[in-house]
């Protein structure tokens, strides 16, 4: 846990939705090494395409301390900072998970259609999309 992460994430435990999707794509299909990788992709994709899935009754809990990959922590921190528009940190966290669940849901939808996550295509489309999206992110001083 980095200093920044521990400073930013004041909660050590997070709630998440869509347990079934995580089980399918990570545990069954083993598309990712762990659920954090799917979560970060879903988070970035959700922010990028502004896909949010609001769910106040999230049951699953992820412990921050269980994140072993440094780049996961970094991505979480970057996303936090992107979304930090001065509102209270708790709201930012909630927003992050709305985006994460929204992104994961989109990705699962793609998977259901093609039984594959065409990550190369997602990456190719991202550049153009970010150029549009970045203007609505207040914390980036373009």
């Amino acid at each position: 846990m980095t200093e920044l992460a521990s400073k930013l994430f004041q909660f050590t435990r997070f709630k998440r939705g869509l347990d079934t999707v995580y089980e399918i794509l990570v545990d069954q299909e083993k598309l990712f090494t762990n659920q954090w990788n799917l979560l970060t992709l879903g988070l970035v994709y959700g922010i990028l395409y502004d896909k949010k899935l609001e769910n106040k009754n999230r049951k699953g809990i992820i412990e921050i301390t269980s994140i072993s990959d440094r780049h996961i922590q970094d991505i979480l921190c970057i996303c936090y900072l992107i979304l930090d528009d001065g509102r209270p940190p708790k709201e930012i966290y909630e927003l992050m998970w709305d985006y994460a669940d929204g992104g994961v849901q989109e990705i699962y939808g793609m998977y259901n259609e093609t039984k594959n996550i065409d990550i190369a295509n997602i990456i190719r489309d991202a550049e153009k999309r970010w150029n549009e999206r970045v203007h609505s992110l207040h914390n980036i001083n373009l």
Binding site: F32, H71, D74, I117, W130, N131
Partner: peptide, 18 residues
């Protein structure tokens, strides 16, 4: 799969470069 674990970072990459 290893590289796909960096999918979030890679999708985020254009923004990082910006």
């Amino acid at each position: 799969k290893t590289k796909r674990d960096f999918s979030g970072l890679l999708v985020l990459n254009p923004l990082l470069k910006t």
